[in-house]
Design a binder for these strands. Structure first.
Length: 253
DNA sequence: AACGAAACCAACCGCAAACGC
DNA sequence: GGCGTTTGCGGTTGGTTTCGT
């Protein structure tokens, strides 16, 4: 697309059950003009009320598309450019702990979006771990037959994600839904799952901070799903929303 | 230079939770 | 509490770019 990433803005495809084309909405890559309209409007009116935003801003896009474009690309806090080795290390650590909870992972990496991290994981880190003989979902060693050798391709080609990958219950288990369900995390190798108890916000924060700074797992700090929810954040410095549940809308804050 | 394969990544979809009445 | 609407998330798609032959 032509917009800020330099790619061509070409209108194209797209599949069969569009939510936007129903109402005559435009789909596909954003143009520079559309980006400008969206940025200008949000500067004036602020984020939120995505459903009505396109109409108010004069865009022929659905609200979802506007939100996505803003969150993943147009926000000033979004950092462009390659993932650094430090960021990569952090992503690995956080993924080991949290699994495919991209928004939560992104929330701890300033300027990176969930979509970007998800893409980076699927195209780089997943393969890297496989080459090292590590299961990218469980972070456990693979058996010898499954180790990806240099130059070998991940089976499944362009479908890097395992079906139901989010539902496996090995060592990084995250129950679906929010509620009061607990997250059970084992990061200590091949031992049985560690079922952590509940604890509170400050501990979660320090836990994640220790994750960033050092190996947190020596500390045996337990982590619960409810804490992850509580730490939904709209960090000014952090590009993406990182709630597990759903954030309060801006007008509610 | 031409072609095909692989890699990359923006954007889409479906779903579930939160919200508001 | 029920119900419709809105928002946000994770998984997936497919067009474009890059790489290899």
């Amino acid at each position: 697309m032509t917009s800020s990433n330099g790619k061509k803005a070409v209108s194209k495809k797209i599949s069969t059950t569009p939510c936007c084309t129903k109402m005559g909405m435009k789909r596909g890559p954003w143009t520079v003009e559309e980006d400008e309209i969206l940025v200008d409007f949000i500067k004036k009116e602020g984020e939120g009320r995505w459903r009505s935003l396109p109409k108010r801003a004069g865009l022929l896009r659905c609200g979802k598309s506007c939100r996505l474009r803003w969150m993943n690309y147009l926000r000033p806090s979004v950092k462009r450019g390659g993932i650094t080795s430090d960021e990569e290390d952090l992503i690995l650590r956080l993924h080991r702990l949290l699994g495919n909870r991209w928004s939560l992972i992104a929330g701890r990496i300033p300027g990176r979006t969930d979509n970007e991290i998800k893409n980076y994981w699927n195209t780089h880190l997943r393969k890297k771990l496989l080459r090292q003989g590590i299961d990218p979902q469980t972070h456990k060693p693979l058996d010898a037959n499954n180790i990806l050798k240099p130059g070998e391709e991940v089976s499944g080609g362009k479908k890097p994600l395992e079906p139901n990958s989010s539902s496996h219950t090995d060592d990084t288990t995250v129950n679906s839904g929010n509620g009061a369900s607990k997250i059970s995390v084992s990061v200590f190798g091949d031992e049985d799952n560690e079922e952590f108890g509940f604890f509170y916000d400050d501990k979660f924060s320090s836990f994640l901070n220790s994750l960033i700074n050092d190996d947190p797992f020596d500390s045996n700090i337990p982590i619960s799903e409810s804490m992850l929810q509580t730490h939904s954040c709209k960090d000014e410095n952090v590009g993406t929303s990182c709630s597990l549940g759903h954030d309060k809308r801006p007008e509610d804050i």
